[in-house]
Structure formats: structure tokens, C-alpha cells
């Protein structure tokens, strides 16, 4: 295992991932710098969630190398449990432990994995619940919370492990629209506090306002990446433009003709000024 301080938080080289005969990732080169917030966007089936899940080895890469915080994840002898402690992950479906209270959800891994004492674990858990605005929900069970509260509790659970990197896998996709804002607010606060974040999302406004860099994926490759105002504001590739127009202006897609075939590319769509979520 190579540990170098100069390595980025996440470094991915020529990553391939196949599920049976289906190749989902076709050679990804990708980096996330320390303290950087990277949003990965793209159509469903583009491989963005698979890429994220490869970073902490929830999916085993077929080929290629991945380093996280200087540790090679793809080393067959990697101490996976100890590396994962430094990588928080937030799921689309929250995945809180339903048989435990919110407080126990936040303390169980601290106690079992980090071997913290009960008092210390509970103090850290309560600090993180306060951070996500759930101070009064410590003794509730997950089923008693709204989707937005559950997702914030899940974020607090990850933060309780003091991760250096946070992965978000479509964290707001399972939420009712009115609950999305609270979760995004917590994530924005986290970004402002300097957390290194890799976010797979469909929330373009979040990507525009919070990301340092936006990565557009399609068909298992990175098509285009750069600062949000470039990728979202002035996309260079037809595939990016077509995707953005479908996401940002879904009711007018039919008028654009056949994306990818029109001789004259449609004007790049601008982000709506009055966005749904004020974050």
C-alpha cells in the first residue's frame, strides 16, 4: 500500500466494471481533491452510482485502480473495514437501522468499530444530531421520522465516524419534493465546513451552487467535467446538452427534435432562475 500525502482524496485510474456481460464502467479516470466537492450527474444507467460504489468497494471493480486517502482500495490485501471508517456513505434509501433508536444508530459503529466509550459516543452522536437539526429526535425510531429527517440522521450517522470523505448516492431521490431542501441545506453546510464530498445527484441547482466541479457521465464514461458554470452553463458536448435539456426543461423535450442528430445543436438550456429549492 502506498501512502502519500500528495495524493488526492480519491484517485481512480482506468476503472472498468462489468455485471456479467454488461459493461457499466468503461475506463474511468477521475480524481477528487482534498476538500473538493464533486457532483456527478448523468442519465440513469450511465454508471454514476456504480462509480461511487466502487470508491468504497461496495462494488468490486473488474479492472483498474482506486486510491482513497492514499490507500489503494483495489489492493487485494487492503484492510477494507479500516479504510471504510474514513469514508462516509449516504444512500438513496437512507438505510438507517430500523431496530435501533436514532441515537443508537449513531453510536453503534462508533462503539463497535472505533471502540469509543458510551459517554463519548453519545456526546459525538448528539453533536452531529445538532449539526443536522435533529436534536430532539435522538430517542425516536427511524420509522417515526419523515424521509428528510431519516436522511439527515443517516448523514449524522456517517459524520459520527469522523470521515475524511463523504459519498452521497442520490441522497434526495427518494424524498418528497418539500423535504429535499432540508437535506441539501445540511449537505451545503457540510461542504462549507470543508468536507471532501462526492455527490451523485439529479439536483442541478445544488451542483451549480455548491460543487467545485461537475462531472457528466454517460454510457459508462466521463463525457465532460469542469466548473459548474461551464458544464451546466456552457456544455461542450451534445450528450451533455441533451441531458441537461431533458432534466431542466422536461416538458419541452419533444420540440428539440431528435437529440444527437439535429444538424443545428439546440441552444444550451439555462438553469431556471427561480429554482424549487432555495439552498
Amino acid at each position: 500500500m502506498t501512502t502519500t500525502a500528495s495524493r488526492p482524496a480519491v484517485e481512480i485510474r482506468d476503472l472498468h466494471k462489468s455485471f456479467g456481460p454488461l459493461e457499466v464502467l468503461k475506463g474511468i479516470d477521475f480524481e477528487v481533491g482534498h476538500g473538493e466537492v464533486v457532483c456527478v450527474i448523468g442519465p440513469s444507467g450511465s454508471g454514476k452510482s456504480t462509480l461511487l460504489r466502487c470508491v468504497n468497494l461496495l462494488e468490486e471493480p473488474t479492472a483498474g485502480k482506486i486510491w482513497v486517502n492514499g490507500t489503494e482500495m483495489t489492493d487485494p490485501d487492503v484492510e477494507i473495514d479500516s479504510v471504510r471508517r474514513g469514508i462516509g456513505m449516504v444512500f438513496q434509501s437512507f438505510n438507517l437501522f430500523p431496530h435501533l433508536t436514532v441515537l443508537d444508530n449513531l453510536t453503534i459503529a462508533q462503539r463497535r468499530v472505533l471502540k469509543r466509550g458510551r459517554a463519548e459516543a453519545e456526546r459525538i452522536a448528539r453533536d452531529n444530531l445538532a449539526r443536522v437539526g435533529l436534536t430532539d429526535k435522538a430517542d425516536a425510531y427511524p420509522a417515526q421520522l419523515s424521509g428528510g429527517q431519516q436522511q439527515r440522521a443517516a448523514i449524522a450517522r456517517s459524520l459520527s465516524m469522523d470521515p475524511k470523505l463523504m459519498l452521497f448516492d442520490e441522497p434526495t431521490s427518494a424524498l418528497d419534493p418539500e423535504l429535499v431542501g432540508d437535506v441539501l441545506t445540511v449537505m451545503r453546510q457540510l461542504a462549507e465546513d470543508g468536507m471532501t464530498m462526492m455527490v451523485v445527484t439529479h439536483e442541478m441547482a445544488f451542483a451549480r451552487d455548491v460543487a467545485d466541479r461537475v462531472v457528466f457521465m454517460d454510457g459508462g464514461v466521463v463525457v465532460e467535467q469542469g466548473p459548474p458554470q461551464e458544464v451546466l452553463g456552457a456544455p461542450q458536448h451534445e450528450r451533455t446538452r441533451s441531458f441537461l435539456s431533458r432534466v431542466l426543461d422536461p416538458t419541452h423535450v419533444a420540440q428539440l427534435g431528435q437529440p444527437g442528430q439535429s444538424a443545428e445543436p439546440p441552444a444550451s438550456p439555462s438553469l431556471p432562475v427561480d429554482d424549487r429549492h432555495h439552498i
Binding site: 473495514d81 438505510n95 431496530h99 459503529a109 468499530v113 456517517s158
Partner: peptide
């Protein structure tokens, strides 16, 4: 027990055994 429960537990750094014993089997 949904697959996500094991994934969440492993993501928090639990071993397969610990995740099984404290998260999956109780459910």
C-alpha cells in the same frame, strides 16, 4: 432484511460478522 442494511453497516467499517450479529440477525 434489505441488502442496504448490510451495506450501511459495512460502510461504517463493521466487519461482515459484526454487521451480521448487530444489524442483520436482530432484524
Amino acid at each position: 432484511v434489505p441488502k442496504g442494511q448490510m451495506e450501511a453497516a459495512r460502510t461504517l467499517g463493521m466487519s461482515h460478522f459484526t454487521a451480521m450479529r448487530t444489524i442483520v440477525i436482530p432484524q
